[in-house]
Amino acid sequence: MSLFLQTIICGILLGAMYALIAIGMTLIMGVMKIINLAHGALVMVGMYITYFCFKEWGIDPYLGMFISMPALFLIGCLIQKYLINRLVEVDSILPENQVLLTVGIMLVLTETMRLIFKSDYRSVVTSYSTKTFFLGDISISIPMTFGFLIAMILTWLLHLFLTRTDLGRSIRATAQDRDAAIYMGVNASRITVITFGIGSALAAAGGSLLLPLFYLWPDIGHLFTAKAFIITILGGMGSTMGAILGGLTLGIAESLGATYISMGYKDVVGLIIFLLVLLFLPGGFRSFTRR
């Protein structure tokens, strides 16, 4: 029983950090209606920035977040402004052109990082990396708990931003109906730039929080892209609440799979859930609340 509880708690803690990455993706998806295949690569870039700060200046990964987030916000804004927004007016055979462009961006980001940091596996070892505390007979890892708490705080701040500020409201309006938002005086193309920036910053935050837990190498981005997709589809596109639920579900499903099936197949569990949801519950968890 305690093994089961341990697995569930571990899954919840991990899931909250995944959710942070997925919220970034779901924001971008909601506003621009495209899938951003470069999202995992943005997480990876955020992780490398945090790693670099830790290695060169000894900045703690949780503080390094405050460097990686603004940096990624800037990168995200630039990508959206000068690359993706340009394609909106271009006519092409395949409507998925913007998606394919994000693939190209992913390739460029991954290979740039490979050029700078090589393909070596890297990890951050801090004084608290392996520390745990006990709750009854369940041991809980301290970096995971930290990550969980910070992820929750960031999500809450984002929620406040989206519901209480003018900018947040314009983002939600653009996501709901772009044309109507434009008629109401929202500068939609500026909103897409800011949204992509915020999405990238959240990806960087998630990356920094996961850095003490994962090995870091340039191809790790694919892993996070896949996870963010699964969560976004689980939670329903464009829904913040859904992304949190989806993140927790994926975290729990993965750790259950790792404990009771095998470490190697834990990613298969996530992917199969993803396919099932895509096929039988295309609206994600949100379709339950609508009924």
């Binding site: 899938i35 998925e96 896949a226 589809i233 197949y265 298969v268 992917l271 096929l279």
Partner: peptide, 28 residues
């Protein structure tokens, strides 16, 4: 039969997931 129920980006994601499942199964 599974993926053609979906369209556009959803189709792309479903095939992506299936491709990854094959890789993971053949690895494990």
């Amino acid at each position: 039969l599974v993926c053609f129920r979906l369209r556009g980006p959803y189709f792309a994601l479903a095939t992506l997931a299936l491709g990854e499942i094959f890789r993971l199964v053949f690895t494990n």
